[in-house]
Each structure stands twice: as structure tokens, then as C-alpha cells.
């Protein structure tokens, strides 16, 4: 507990703006934004459903977890009981999303597969390229 008090005191002396924990939280938040950029670009550009599912399932989970962890660190102003409670609550959301989003992706993927939604093969790709060249 002494270490925490020391950090909190040093944060108070610096005005709180350059608190290393906040900086780390912001770094995690922006990292999450970068991963979500990957998800968005993947959703735009990938050719068929399963590849889009790949982009959405992975990037979405990781970016949400990173952003929420970042926010949990940024909202941690002092190490009082209330802020610890808030930290634990936000980490609870992170845990819930860590469990639930991959599961829903899996369920959707299975539903698509049993609905005869065919993945794109190499021949399909060649056909679409030829069509693109003709145009």
C-alpha cells in the first residue's frame, strides 16, 4: 500500500496530467483504436463472409478489451476504495466481453456454415479478377 500512496502523492505534485498510469491507459486506448481500424478496414475490403468474420471476430474483441482497460486506468484518479470498485467493474465488463464476443462469433459462423454459405475459393477469386479486367 505504501507504494501506491507514494505514486498517488507524486501524481498530486505533478498536477495529475503526466501520471504514468494515465499515460499507459491512453496508450492502451489508442492501441485499441488502431485494432478497431483494422476491423473496420477488414469489414470493408475482405471478399467473402468468412474473411470478414475473421476481421470482426478478432479485432473487435481485442480492441474493445484494450479500450476498456485503458479507460479503467484513466478513470483511476486516486487509489481510494471507490475508484478500485470502478476499476474492478470495468474489468468485469472486459471479462464479459472476452467470454461473450468470441462465443457469439462462433455461433454466427456456425449458423452461416449450416446455412450453406460457401467460403470463397481460388476459382471464384480468378473469376472475379477476370471480370474486373474486362471492365
Amino acid at each position: 500500500m505504501n507504494g501506491f500512496q507514494f505514486i498517488a502523492a507524486s501524481a498530486g505534485s505533478e498536477g495529475g496530467s503526466l501520471f504514468p498510469l494515465h499515460l499507459f491507459g491512453m496508450f492502451l486506448g489508442f492501441l485499441g483504436l488502431i485494432f478497431f481500424l483494422g476491423t473496420a478496414v477488414g469489414m470493408m475490403r475482405f471478399p467473402d463472409f468468412y474473411t470478414r468474420m475473421h476481421a470482426a471476430g478478432k479485432g473487435d474483441t481485442l480492441s474493445t478489451m484494450l479500450m476498456l482497460t485503458g479507460f479503467a486506468l484513466v478513470t483511476m484518479e486516486d487509489f481510494s476504495l471507490g475508484s478500485w470498485l470502478l476499476f474492478v467493474k470495468i474489468m468485469g465488463v472486459v471479462l464479459f466481453i472476452f467470454l461473450s464476443t468470441p462465443t457469439s462469433s462462433h455461433a454466427l459462423m456456425r449458423a452461416a456454415f449450416e446455412d450453406d454459405e460457401m467460403p470463397m475459393t481460388e476459382e471464384d477469386l480468378k473469376k472475379s479478377r477476370k471480370r474486373g479486367k474486362k471492365k
Partner: peptide
């Protein structure tokens, strides 16, 4: 579904 049922059991 196996994965969904086990995850629901947890959640």
C-alpha cells in the same frame, strides 16, 4: 452447440 452451451453455463 457445444461451445455455446458451455459458455452459457459459465455466464
Amino acid at each position: 452447440d457445444l461451445i455455446v452451451t458451455n459458455m452459457v453455463r459459465l455466464i
